[in-house]
Nucleic acid binder design. Structure first.
Lengths: 216, 216
DNA sequence: GGTTAAATCAAGCGATCGTTATACTCGGCG
DNA sequence: CGCCGAGTATAACGATCGCTTGATTTAACC
């Protein structure tokens, strides 16, 4: 594959990443992708097999960057002994939320895309997503379980999932225009960086006492 | 409007509510709605003006039921003095998550639809949503702010938004197949009721210490 | 230069999309 | 009875959808 072919492939991936993130999978036509990528429709079917194949490729590439960073950060954390809950949450959140700072505009697209994928209908994409990042996430889950000896593994897993979801929602700005105005929003309207807020809130999730068992 | 006309309208609303919740707005065609509702395509444009008008109507009806319940529960809570954080979170979560128990299968559709709306692209729907439930949510926000005197209003608002998002994600089962297998999932695979887990985790969000200020 | 395979293109396939114009049915009112 | 408006059904509009085909370009190799 020539260098120009790879360039075409990447232009398609870039366009799809942005548009899927902005309008969702079902809401994005292949024509829209080819237009913004300045590419012919057939190239999509040549490089990827179908629209879903394109989605898979985009998801793989998008997750790769944050997966690497998460592995690296966790390695670094573990060399200094068993990491605490807040350290783990911070590492996880920062690798997701700071994509913008680390990768510029592209990072924003990646973040939005990843967030969107988790909310899209059809569990197939979510499962692909889970499989793609399973290795990293498994490590974080294990570390969190070890850092929370008082909590059963199932409970930690539940809260871990919740953390992933919250991060996704914030990455796609789904919560931006949610609360009614005039209730303290104006205070932080010029929102600087929510990362620290997120870390604090998410750490609170893990530190909460265990829920009483409920008979099913 | 005759009684049969109202029946048609409701059949359309029911079908749209379910399908929008399952496949999303962009992923649901009007034909699919008319087929499951056993109605002609034109009736949609007669009763509602367009596809988006249908969405608005569905959103209004879906939110009405939980809004009422939330108002009622908060009233009841306030007559017994200022409610605590966990009480407030519980009231909010239960009214959302227990729709199934209170309304049967219909409740499941409502819950899924509401969850989906918050994750759909296009902020218009989210804003409509926020406007629709703004009154109730404002009350909860106020009560939470009063129950958390140590936290600035903006911080409470941020965490409140997070809570709404988490509840939505759980209502649409978006977090079900997320974590990799073999990490404590099997323990609670036969998931009974997550409501108590949710309440515990979400209460933890509000009880977390304030994040340190970060210079923007 | 001729051959071959990778890569891109224009054009169009059938299907389905949201939407609309039009005709029909039917109960209430004069 | 005739009329009318609310409500439903038929049929189709143009646009766009995901996807395919067949020709054309490009570059590497003998």
């Amino acid at each position: 594959m020539g260098i120009d072919a790879a360039a075409t492939r990447n232009r398609i991936l870039d366009a799809a990443e942005r548009l899927f993130g902005e309008r969702g999978f079902a809401g994005t036509s292949l024509r829209a992708v080819t237009t913004t990528a300045r590419v012919n429709v057939a190239s999509i079917y040549y490089h990827f097999e179908s629209k879903e194949g394109l989605l898979r490729a985009v998801a793989r590439r998008a997750m790769a960057s944050v997966s690497e960073e998460r592995h690296r950060l966790l390695d670094e954390l573990c060399t200094r002994g068993d990491p605490g809950v807040e350290e783990l949450v911070r590492a996880f959140v920062v690798t997701g939320a700071d994509l913008v700072r680390r990768q510029g505009e592209r990072g924003e697209h990646v973040a939005r895309f990843i967030g969107r994928v988790l909310c899209e209908p059809g569990p197939e994409v979510r499962r692909l997503f889970a499989a793609e990042v399973g290795h990293v996430e498994g490590r974080y889950l294990d570390a969190l379980t070890k850092a929370l000896p008082g909590l059963p593994a199932g409970e930690v897993a539940f809260r871990y999932r919740t953390m992933v979801g919250v991060l996704a929602l914030h990455q796609m700005d789904a919560l931006a225009d949610l609360a009614p105005p005039g209730h303290g929003d104006d205070i932080w309207a010029g929102r600087g960086d929510d990362t620290e807020r997120l870390i604090a809130a998410l750490t609170g999730i893990f530190l909460a006492p265990q829920a009483p068992a409920v008979p099913s």
